[in-house]
Design a protein around this nucleic acid. Structure first.
Length: 474
RNA sequence: GGCCCGUUCGUCUAUCGGUUAGGACGUCAGGUUUUCAACCUGAAAAGAGGGGUUCGACUCCCCUACGGGCUGCCA
């Protein structure tokens, strides 16, 4: 009995142009492609669209690769340089010429610009109709020419999009796009189709700023007799005010999110959920995202960035992470932000402190800040509030606490009863005992529980800090 | 200007003709607590507007408004 029909292999790709850092919108596009391919045992490819030699830089390419790696998105094979494939693009353009699907256009950029300007001024359509479209090839003169697609003028082009549904374009609204420039270099419109075809891309998941382009690109597929990929044009991400995302909205580059200390897993979760949903699920793992992610659940309206929600999700991921993984994450963060690495003693202290720290921090730097008590060796530098907490009365409390702490068994129960005894002997509640003790132990007015801290730093250090605090200038 | 896409609580979203329109973040109130955070309980909070279609529309169609995209020998 034959098995179920083999699912066609899925091939997706992310195709950024290397003209700057990887921005958050691009990162989400990459994530969607990655999720779609990985969830189906398919391939996720990377292509650098560097045909614009003026604006493309190797630094930008490096930044994009680094951004993807940080986000944890791995791609199959080497990143493809689109520029390196320019001969192949030219070959296809000439093939279209030979098939009569394209023609030589000798109109110069200056002429075309003049036409458009006049058309704009008179409020006419700026669609350029080349006079060379129907010229007999026998009459083609020598001299520089661009190769233009001979697009149909009648009827309509139907783009079946997995997100937007069936989109119709009247062919008389589309012009004959240039495929090969007069200097022999390919345009994006041609290159993207040739590359996607040659790379075997089956699903094109990209920003919906390309939806209009899909119609024209489809004409190239048709002209060459190539199968059209599944289109999925996803809405762009907007700033919190609903406007197009830009610098003034705060972090737009992926590297900025890394520097802010969001764990990559949290950002993946947040980005995945932005403009896509799976019922009421909000917090989920990569494995779940891979299982659940699909095209029909992608929203059709642009989504706004919500830093509060990102922060909340980040806190949940930090709290849920295993201690070892979290420690690893912290060290990576330190390295990425060019901060001094942890010493062995600090690493040891931090890993013991993690359990009482990790559900208190929303980001990595916040966690580090709250880990001050466990990371500091030698005398603490108390902040103003901690200093203020150690007044004359408080010094007495610290004095009274010291002897029993010397003898107590170093366990939660035993330490609790030491504190209870001292409170009782002074006729006060925990509320009087805890603040000075907290200040002495952490140098802060805000910290994990006092007993948690004592258990982490140990008896010797606890007693030393109590003693240090007595000498703080009040 | 032309073409294309979109519009449910402040935000992300569920709903795929019949629901008290659900969840999450945020906000507010209360609880717990040695502080902060976390946590628990509760509350306020939405179908852009107008026409249709239908026994019945958030859901389907049209118009308007608003937002976005494209309109390059950029990608």
């Amino acid at each position: 009995m034959p098995g179920p029909a083999a699912a066609p292999p899925v091939v997706t790709r992310f195709a950024p142009s290397p003209t700057g850092y990887l921005h958050i919108g691009g990162a989400r596009t990459a994530l969607f492609n990655w999720l779609y391919a990985r969830g189906r045992g398919g391939k996720f490819l990377l292509r650098i669209e560097d045909t614009d030699r003026e604006r493309s830089t190797p630094e930008a390419t490096a930044a994009i690769l680094q951004g993807l790696r940080w986000l944890g998105l791995d791609w199959d094979g080497e990143a493809v340089s689109q520029f390196a494939r320019k001969d192949r693009h030219a070959e296809v353009a000439h093939e279209m010429l030979a098939r009569g699907a394209a023609y030589r256009c000798y109109a110069t950029p200056a002429e075309i610009e003049a036409f458009r300007e006049a058309a704009r001024a008179e409020g006419r359509s700026t669609l350029f109709r080349s006079p060379w479209r129907d010229a007999d090839p026998a009459t083609w003169p020598e001299g520089p020419y661009a190769i233009r697609m001979k697009a149909p003028r009648e009827g309509e082009t139907l783009v079946e999009d997995a997100v937007q549904g069936m989109v119709r374009f009247r062919n008389d609204q589309l012009d004959d796009m240039i495929c090969l420039r007069s200097d022999g270099t390919p345009t994006y419109m041609l290159a993207v189709v040739v590359d996607d075809h040659d790379m075997g891309v089956t699903h094109v998941i990209r920003g919906d700023d390309h939806l209009n382009n899909a119609a024209r690109q489809q004409m190239v597929y048709d002209a060459m007799g190539w199968p059209v990929p599944v289109w999925a044009h996803i809405p762009l991400i907007h700033g919190p005010d609903g406007k197009k995302l830009s610098k003034r909205h705060g972090a737009v580059g992926l590297h900025e999110y890394a520097a802010l200390g969001y764990p990559p897993a949290a950002l993946r979760n947040y980005l995945c959920r932005l403009g896509w949903s799976h019922g009421d699920d909000e917090f989920f793992t990569d494995a779940q995202a891979r299982d659940w992610f699909d095209l029909p659940q992608i929203g059709r309206a642009p989504a706004r960035l919500d830093f509060k929600k990102l922060e909340n999700l980040s806190g949940q991921h930090i709290a849920a992470m295993a201690d070892a993984a979290l420690l690893h994450e912290i060290e990576a963060f330190l390295a990425a932000t060019a901060q001094p690495p942890l010493t062995d003693v600090q690493r040891d202290g931090l890993s013991r402190a993690l359990p009482c720290l990790k559900d208190r921090a929303k980001t990595l730097p916040e966690l580090l800040e709250k880990a001050y008590f466990a990371l500091t060796q030698g005398p603490l530098e108390p902040d103003a509030k901690a200093r203020a907490a150690v007044d004359v009365v408080s010094r007495g409390i610290l004095d009274e606490l010291t002897p029993p702490l010397r003898n107590a068994r170093w366990s939660r129960d035993a330490l609790e009863s030491v504190l209870a005894d001292v409170a009782a002997s002074r006729g006060v509640g925990f509320g009087k005992i805890a603040p000075p003790l907290r200040a002495a132990l952490s140098g802060r007015a805000v910290s994990p529980g006092v007993i948690d801290m004592m258990l982490v730093i140990g008896r010797e250090e606890t007693i030393a800090r109590l003693s240090d605090a007595r000498s703080w200038a009040g």
